[in-house]
Structures are given as structure tokens and as C-alpha cells.
Amino acid sequence: MKGIVLRKNDNQVVVETLPIPQVGDEQVLVKVICTGICGTDIKLLKGQYHLRENIEKVVVGHEFVGMVVELGASVDNIKKGDRITAQPTIRSCGTCQYCHTGQFNLCKDRTRIGFDADGSFAEYIVLHKDQIYHLPDQISDEAAAMIEPLTVAVRAVYKAEIKPTDTVLITGPGTIGLLTLLVAKQHGCRTLVCGTKMDEKKLKIASALGADKVFMNDQWKEEIGAEKISIVFECAGHESAVNMGLELIVPKGQYIQVGTKSSKIEVDFMTVAYKELRITGSIAAIREDWIHAIELMVQCEDKAQLLIDKIYPLDKWETGLESLLNNGGPKILLQP
């Protein structure tokens, strides 16, 4: 089979011919139907992400939909022909306080497809039976490939206590930001989305998704006016967006950090104190987020489809990456 592989020795990403993986007792073999390029995948594909010490190379990718084609001897809750998606987490330690409460996303020893084990940028992928979620027939393959980022948005929004009277600001209209908007709109709140000049296309998608106002972040002083922003979802992971959100939010407001960055950023924490803000982070997703995301995708697929820009064959992954980097997307899909 073909797979897009990140190699440790030269930090290069190449298309390799690989053996079709073999299944263990508690594993299934899945034929990948469609897989999405994530922002983290971009770091991998650009050679900006270093593999763990014991890993020499890995197939990239963790957002996907596929069909089960082979079962391990101990798998009894899945059958051949099932259309599925899967959480990236393969395993966690199972003994820490977070694992005991189902919060495996916080386990320091968790391993993930596309990072610590071969991922979905290939024709086939092996998964543990506990990773898998069955998909309703109503969800198309393209929408199913976006369920993983939707779970991230679901987790972020559920961190806040949103009322219909709230005004919510979302910074960064990438895939996560736009899906966060989609989830937040279910609460009936007023929503604002801001981005950079490079995000003009994505801001138009935000409007189509129901954003009440979109604007460029260098125009926020003119655009915000009398808006009373009570909740901020920071989805860009940039210092300027973080501090803009902290400046704009009203006292006693809720601030949720969703976007990530590999380097440290400077934050005006005195604003946090003086405004008595409630701040939390949100990372990845747990099982309940997956269940809610699948249910939500059934209801909102027509809007989620607006995020898809182009679909490329797997061996055209470089074209897809270039499209994203040149303000394509927010979502580019690959088909093996």
C-alpha cells in the first residue's frame, strides 16, 4: 500500500510503498476512505515535528473515515463492512487520576495514531477496537472525515456556560474555529468571528455558518463598538489573538484557550486578575465528546460541508498542503 511517511533520520516526508499492516487479537484493519489534513499535520508535513525517541518513521494523519476489512480474534463488537471513524488515542496508561475518570486526553503517556503509531494518510490503517466509533448512514464520507476536529470544538464549547444572552468571540477561523462557531450557535448566542487578512475566504464561511459579525483583527476597535463579549474561544494560538481576547472580554467573562502553539507566548495576566476572568484550556477530546460530535454532525452536515475546499488523491498530498498554506481550506481532504 501507499502511505505518507515522516522519517526521523532526515526529517523528510515522502510517499512510501508499505506492507499492509497485520492485525492483532484486539485490532481491526480498516480501509481508509477519506482523510483530512489537520493543522498539526502541517507541522509534521513541513518537518517541524520531531518523533519520539523510539520511533524511526510514522504514517501521518488522524482525521478519517474508513471501512473495516479484517478483524482480530478477540474483536466481537465490530464486523467487516462497518463504516467507522476513530479517536486518535490508541492507549493511555490506565492508572493515572485522569485515566480513572475517563480523561485520557490528559494522560502524559497516551499514544496516538499519526504521531506515535501509523496514521490515516495511507490505504489501510490498524486500530484498536476501543478506538472505534460506528457511523450513522446519514453522515457522508466527507463529513465523517471531519468528526475528529468537531470533537475538539465540542469539548471546547462544553467548557463554557453559554446562555442565549451571551456574546461569544471566536478568534481564528480555521477548521477548529469554524466548528467551534457551529457548536456555539446551537446555544442561541450572538457570535463574532475575527481573523487576519489571509482569512477573508474563511470569514465568508463563518458568515454562511451563521456568525452575526465577522471582522479582521486589526479592525477590532472599529468593529466591536458596544458589543459586550462575555465568552472568548481563542482558536488561533497566536499571541496577538490571545491578548486581544483578554482585552475585549468583559469582567467576569469566560475565556477558553483552544488554539495551540509550540513556543511560549507572553500573556497580560494582570488583565485576568483585574477582570476576575474565568480561564480554562481545552485539548483534544474524550469519549462523550465523540458521541456528541457524531450526533451533531447528523444534524449539521450541510453546514459542516461548507468547510471543505478540495479533495485530492493521496499521492497529491503536496498539492493539498500547498493549497492550505496558500489560504485554501479550511479543510482539504485526501482520498487513498
Score class of each variant (00 low, 15 high):
Q97L: 09
C99A: 02
C99L: 02
C99V: 00
C99H: 02
H100W: 08
G102R: 00
G102N: 01
Q103Y: 08
F104V: 03
F104L: 07
L106T: 02
C107N: 09
C107A: 08
D109M: 14
R110S: 15
R110W: 12
R110Q: 09
R110V: 15
T111F: 12
R112T: 14
R112C: 14
I113E: 07
F115P: 11
D116I: 07
D116S: 08
A117T: 12
D118R: 13
S120M: 11
F121S: 10
A122E: 14
E123C: 14
I125V: 09
V126I: 13
V126F: 09
L127V: 07
L127P: 06
L127K: 07
H128N: 09
H128D: 11
K129C: 14
K129P: 10
I132G: 03
Y133H: 15
H134W: 15
L135C: 10
D137W: 15
I139K: 01
I139S: 11
S140K: 12
S140Q: 14
S140R: 10
D141I: 08
D141W: 10
E142W: 13
E142S: 09
A144S: 06
A144K: 03
A144L: 10
A145D: 10
A145G: 03
M146H: 02
M146K: 01
I147M: 08
E148W: 00
E148V: 01
E148Q: 01
P149E: 06
P149G: 04
L150N: 01
L150E: 00
T151P: 04
V152P: 05
A153F: 01
R155W: 14
R155G: 05
V157F: 01
Y158P: 02
Y158K: 07
K159G: 03
K159A: 06
A160G: 03
A160I: 09
I162W: 03
K163M: 09
T165I: 06
T165Q: 05
T167D: 03
T167Y: 06
L169K: 01
G172M: 00
G172H: 00
P173M: 00
